[in-house]
Amino acid sequence: MEVRTIKVFTTVDNINLHTQVVDMSMTYGQQFGPTYLDGADVTKIKPHNSHEGKTFYVLPNDDTLRVEAFEYYHTTDPSFLGRYMSALNHTKKWKYPQVNGLTSIKWADNNCYLATALLTLQQIELKFNPPALQDAYYRARAGEAANFCALILAYCNKTVGELGDVRETMSYLFQHANLDSCKRVLNVVCKTCGQQQTTLKGVEAVMYMGTLSYEQFKKGVQIPCTCGKQATKYLVQQESPFVMMSAPPAQYELKHGTFTCASEYTGNYQCGHYKHITSKETLYCIDGALLTKSSEYKGPITDVFYKENSYTTTIK
């Protein structure tokens, strides 16, 4: 009895394709271990004539594949690729409408935090270190965002349907971005203890939790000093293409032309909904596939993004 075979390709990165001759009487799992086709788990399936010449994702289970996976995804987590594939199996079914010149995501599976993050990423200057993220990001900007969303979920250790947080998501993504040249110098002034300067680099240099107003941050924000008295913390120097200011959701007025974009969060910790506000020729609110415009805006804002380049204080 002759062994019926077909020729397929296996890959971990969709760049390096490895030619395989597979036995049609055995499952993919018996031949390769966990195997995925377009995100779908085909591990328990036997090869079919229609699979001839198709590319299958496999887990990096030998040295060659491990090197290829690390170079593309910059992670050695053995569960990463499987999590990416199972997320992709959902995100490829989502709709990605162009809204006001940006790629958004039609609401499904509690994905409003991903839509808000995706919209924000198209408006701030950011370059990702893992080629996987950078490639998928370019495709997302062009309207094909399924891979990018699935990668975000995998890097953030999230599953489809789980509630997510924009600030946490951005923080994970910033860790995989090139923020080497970003720098922030802060000064804390206390009447009792004097003053202390701190220099922050990388992710810490672009994120701040405690106030939404970048102007206020430049002037000074009140913080408790270690001595128990009130101290003032203010920005001395900022070198970065953008800054992200966050605070627990509270009524906040966004003035046209003073910011790049913002995240609105309605609801409580267990259950809520994100919308995205962007400042173009007027203010726009993007909620999944829905767009509304207004000249002014007041609502429960939790993150505001500002364009920056270089700032030095005039406070002496």
Rank of each mutant, 00 (worst) to 15 (best):
G29R: 05
T292S: 15
V8D: 02
D77P: 05
E68K: 09
A87M: 06
L126F: 09
Q122L: 05
Q251T: 10
Y234M: 11
E239N: 10
Q216L: 08
D180T: 10
Q122I: 04
I152Y: 02
T116M: 06
M245E: 00
K280C: 11
K275Q: 06
L88P: 06
T10H: 08
P34N: 15
L179K: 05
T19I: 11
A205F: 02
G53D: 09
K95N: 07
I315N: 15
K307T: 10
V188E: 07
K218E: 03
H90Q: 11
G33Y: 05
I6W: 07
T260C: 15
C193A: 02
A150W: 01
G161V: 05
A289S: 13
K183H: 07
I315V: 13
A262Q: 00
K44S: 13
A145V: 05
T76E: 09
Q237G: 06
N187I: 11
Q216G: 08
V185L: 06
P224F: 11
T43A: 14
L291N: 13
H256R: 12
A132C: 07
P241Y: 04
Q195R: 12
S181I: 07
K293G: 09
Y252D: 00
L114T: 03
Y84A: 03
K280W: 08
L88H: 05
Y172P: 01
S181R: 14
T120S: 11
I277K: 02
G267V: 08
K298Y: 15
H273L: 01
W107M: 01
A154S: 07
Q31M: 13
Y113A: 03
W107S: 03
L119I: 07
L290H: 12
E264Q: 08
K191R: 10
Y72W: 15
A87E: 06
F305K: 03
K95L: 14
R139Y: 09
F259H: 01
W94L: 04
N147S: 12
K298E: 15
S246P: 00
D109P: 03
G272V: 00
K92A: 08
R141L: 10
R83Q: 08
K280R: 14
N268V: 07
E71D: 15
C182G: 05
R184A: 14
S310W: 11
T258C: 07
T278K: 01
V42H: 11
M244D: 00
T10V: 14
I124R: 04
Y96S: 04
T198V: 13
F242V: 02
G202V: 02
Y214E: 00
V160E: 00
F217D: 00
V8N: 01
K46G: 10
F174V: 03
K92L: 12
L102T: 00
T116K: 00
T169K: 02
P60I: 07
C261S: 02
K92G: 06
E168A: 11
L283S: 00
S295Y: 15
Y172V: 08
Q30M: 10
C225N: 00
